[in-house]
Amino acid sequence: MSEPKKNTKMTVFKTDRHEDMAAIFFVTVVVASILIYMAFIIPSVTIKAPTSGKVVAVAVQKGSEVKKGDLLYSLQLKGKPEPKKYKAVTSGKILSVTAKPDDAVKKGKDVILVLQHEKGTLP
């Protein structure tokens, strides 16, 4: 009578305890890679429209320096009375501005501006 070994085998891991630990480890690696990549590896980020709407104003120009908390641009969203303001989450320099007032922008598609962030900050 042969022992059915395969029966207790779950994944590559022995039990869910191992699998959970592996998942925690995997996430640690993924999150750490993302943070290091954003903070140290890429020099600049392309900021795309976070939601669809109409550009009301762009407060920065090409070449201007921004500090954390400075207003970058504002968007008029559908069904909202007030335009929504978007501020810089990190200090840096504006490399280019693509969006103009009155432009209709689509979420995740249209570029608004390119920001060169300070090394070591999370843009």
């Binding site: 999150v31 993302i34 943070l35 954003m38 980020v45 976070p50 978007y86 989450v89 990190t90 999370l122």
Partner: peptide, 16 residues
């Protein structure tokens, strides 16, 4: 420690 809400870092993390 994971970046501010609305930042590109958070955006990338959610894509992943």
């Amino acid at each position: 420690m994971l970046g501010a809400e609305g930042s590109e870092t958070i955006h990338l993390m959610r894509q992943v």
